[in-house]
Simulated scan of single mutants.
Amino acid sequence: MKVSQCMSPDVCVAMPDMSLRDAATLMADIDAGALPVRQGDRLVGMITDRDIAIRGIAAGLGPDARVNQAMSTEVKYCYEDEDAEHVARNMGDIQVRRLPVLNRDKRLVGIVALADLACSATDRENLGCALGDISRDSSLHSQTLPRTH
């Protein structure tokens, strides 16, 4: 099955000049923790609730700061014509639960969540491995405070 068959084509997006408050409000309205950031017809970043908290508020930015001050610019994505099970494995490898979906012209056409792939997966074992990989310990997402000597 292709990603285009299980993705959500209706994507709410943030704009780089949107305030962090407006991005957070949009996330609350749609009950999502991440938004693709679009400028014109191009994907230029992702903003997550964690980005707002860590790169925004914890770094001293206020609610009126702009999305482009806290967003991730290194965006992981997949293509609409990719195999869904391959994408699920990749999501496990890179430890993300959702990916923007682009067409081959690199235009945003949807978003796919691991749950979307679960509903369409014929290979449940690979999907389970992907979920396990997403949840594995990583220095990128540690809950341990750094030791001070």
Rank of each mutant, 00 (worst) to 15 (best):
L117S: 00
N126W: 14
L145Y: 11
R66Q: 14
A28M: 10
D31N: 11
P100N: 07
Q39W: 05
G132L: 10
A24V: 06
Q143K: 11
C119D: 10
A130T: 03
Y79S: 07
V101M: 03
D93K: 09
A121S: 14
A121I: 10
S72A: 10
A84N: 05
A34E: 07
A121M: 14
S8D: 15
P16R: 09
A23H: 03
M18L: 12
P9H: 07
R38I: 09
D116Q: 07
I134C: 13
K76V: 06
T144P: 00
S4H: 09
D133E: 13
L127N: 08
D10E: 15
A59I: 04
D83I: 15
L114W: 00
Q5M: 15
P9S: 14
E80M: 01
G92M: 03
D22V: 01
H86F: 10
R66K: 15
Q5W: 06
D31F: 04
C78S: 08
D81S: 14
S4A: 15
A84V: 10
M91E: 01
L108D: 04
V75L: 00
G56R: 04
M71H: 02
T148K: 11
S142L: 04
E82F: 07
Q5D: 15
R38M: 15
L108C: 08
R66A: 14
T122D: 13
L131E: 07
A53F: 08
L43R: 07
Q39L: 06
S8N: 15
T122R: 14
S4I: 09
H149S: 09
C129Q: 12
E74P: 00
N90I: 08
V112E: 02
G60R: 06
A65D: 07
S8L: 13
